[in-house]
């Protein structure tokens, strides 16, 4: 039986390489020959209209979905080769917040801290609750929280184990202005800490100036987004108009 990677992890990676990855669901093509590279210390935006394949790509990078063709490499290893060690280095915040509504905020974080085998779990959980601005509601069941509060808690659950690769799917959903600013600051902190961050979002104005670069997905393929020449939203609209 293997120990948790948090305790004894020799696995680390400087970049993630997606090479010619396709993913089909029956006859429907969610992704077609997608290639991209994520490097440490980078915050990358993943843009695209609804149904473009953003969530599928995040699922692939999180090793929850296997590619139909092509490879995803974390450093020099694939997800199959790295197994649980890789999963300990990933953090995924998805549309569904993956919290247990009957449990309190603290119990949710305690449970995941336990699963990840984190040292000094109690201190980490308390710090996470402070960052989520939920310290005074730590003993309340999550089912009584607003969407924004749950979103903040889910973000802290995602980052609790200090993952190398952070995958965020619409992280600004339900957040008020203050929480959006806090999240933007958090993303900058993650870049300073040399984490790889991929943010799928439609809130282009919020991430403009935070992301180092952006990748456009369109009908499952990587599209071309101008690197300069206007705001991110203007470039995105121009790319979609082509």
């Amino acid at each position: 039986m293997s120990a948790t990677p948090a305790a004894e992890d020799p696995f680390d990676f400087e970049q993630v390489t997606v090479s010619n990855v396709s993913r089909h669901y029956g006859r429907r093509r969610a992704l077609t020959r997608v290639s991209l590279t994520l490097r440490r210390g980078e915050v990358v935006g993943l843009l695209g209209p609804n149904g473009a394949g953003k969530s599928t790509l995040l699922g692939l990078l999180a090793s929850l979905i296997a590619p139909s063709a092509g490879t995803v490499r974390y450093g020099d290893r694939t997800a199959d080769a790295a197994g649980a060690l890789l999963r300990g280095r990933l953090g995924l915040l998805s549309h569904e917040l993956r919290l247990y509504p009957e449990l309190t905020a603290r119990e949710n974080l305690d449970f995941f801290a336990g699963l990840y085998g984190l040292p000094d779990a109690a201190a980490r959980v308390s710090a996470a609750l402070e960052r989520a601005r939920l310290a005074d509601r730590a003993g309340d069941a999550v089912q009584g929280f607003s969407r924004g509060m749950r979103q903040r808690l889910a973000l802290e659950r995602t980052l609790l184990h200090d993952p190398r690769l952070v995958l965020l799917d619409e992280p600004f959903t339900g957040l008020d202005e203050g929480s959006c600013r806090a999240l933007a600051s958090r993303l900058r902190d993650l870049r300073s800490a040399r984490r790889m961050v991929l943010v799928a979002t439609h809130d282009l104005d919020l991430i403009d100036g935070i992301v180092d670069r952006a990748v456009l997905l369109r009908r499952g393929r990587v599209g071309t987004l101008a690197e300069a020449g206007g705001t991110l939203r203007e470039r995105y609209r121009a790319a979609l108009a082509e």
Partner: peptide
């Protein structure tokens, strides 16, 4: 499934 918590369990670095 309610909150897709099953995937969070499967993503944990455990057997």
């Amino acid at each position: 499934l309610g909150q897709d918590a099953l995937r969070a369990l499967l993503l944990a670095p455990v057997e």
